[in-house]
């Protein structure tokens, strides 16, 4: 799976060019750090902010963790019910389809009224963002279990919904659940900044970026936090892929690759 070094080097070239262009344009063309801070200034900011940064990352991960845990534990049981029982799907799907298009940020007022200004309110916004992708991919997995596998289970004594879900449908749907979770993590992460903007605490990447750095016009700090937000999401995604998809779904190789 390892790319040859030469190709790896090749894919680094455009990245370096972009960074160089950034530095040159910011430093010699625009020359206004309020509009575009220089790349070197941003890197230096990350170094200056390192202590704050750790606290903010931990706070954001806490919000993210609350949201993802809620989303996963609510979406999975509902996905099983919707994917496995046709009538549940018929009954619940219209409700889901009405709520789903509402942007997570529109839930902020309700989050404040219902939960208050605390970590759980931020978690709630992330929950709204992550819930639907997990739900939809997961119930699709349960709905698509091939009939022949269910019947094979039947003739081998695996009879009744509980056994069939446990031994046939759940293992079959696991890759879809993982995909949904991965997409959900992505959407959930996008909600982190907004979820911290409305004053649920006094730390967090989104809080710092918007409430502190932006109001003080410290654009190099803002961009530094943007980069951190991106890199962190990339790391989370890679970790998930490494520990869940590559380890758990060796059996899928023949199908997807």
């Amino acid at each position: 799976m390892r790319l040859p070094t030469k190709e790896e080097g090749l894919s680094l070239v455009p990245l370096i060019i972009v960074l160089l262009l950034w530095e040159i344009i910011a430093g010699y063309v625009i020359r206004d750090p309020l509009i575009v801070p220089r790349f070197s200034a941003v890197i230096f900011s990350i170094y200056t902010l390192r202590e704050l940064l750790i606290i903010d990352i931990l706070t954001s991960l806490l919000h993210f963790g609350i949201g993802m845990t809620l989303a996963f534990s609510a979406a999975l049981p509902l996905a099983i019910a919707m994917g496995w029982f046709r009538n549940v799907f018929r009954a619940v799907d219209p409700i889901i389809e009405i709520i789903r298009p509402i942007p997570p940020l529109a839930w902020i007022p309700l989050a404040i009224v219902w939960i208050g200004l605390n970590h759980y309110a931020a978690g709630f916004i992330i929950f709204i963002g992550a819930f639907f992708p997990i739900l939809i991919d997961s119930y699709t997995g349960f709905r698509d279990v091939p009939k022949v596998l269910v019947e094979t289970g039947n003739v081998l004594g695996c009879i009744g919904n509980i056994k069939l879900i446990r031994y046939v449908a759940l293992p079959y749907a696991l890759p879809s659940i993982a995909t949904g979770t991965r997409v959900g993590m992505g959407v959930g992460w996008m909600c982190v900044v907004a979820a911290e903007m409305f004053g649920v605490g006094n730390s967090g990447l989104g809080y710092r970026l918007f409430q502190k750095f932006y109001f003080l016009h410290q654009m190099d700090y803002v961009v530094a936090y943007m980069l951190i937000l991106g890199l962190l999401a990339l790391c989370l995604d890679r970790l998930f892929r490494h520990f869940v998809e590559d380890k758990l779904f060796r059996w899928k190789k023949g199908i997807v690759k």
Partner: peptide, 11 residues
């Protein structure tokens, strides 16, 4: 029972 289509549990 042995089915015509492949029926092994892929996982």
């Amino acid at each position: 029972m042995v089915f015509q289509e492949f029926s092994l549990f892929p996982w």
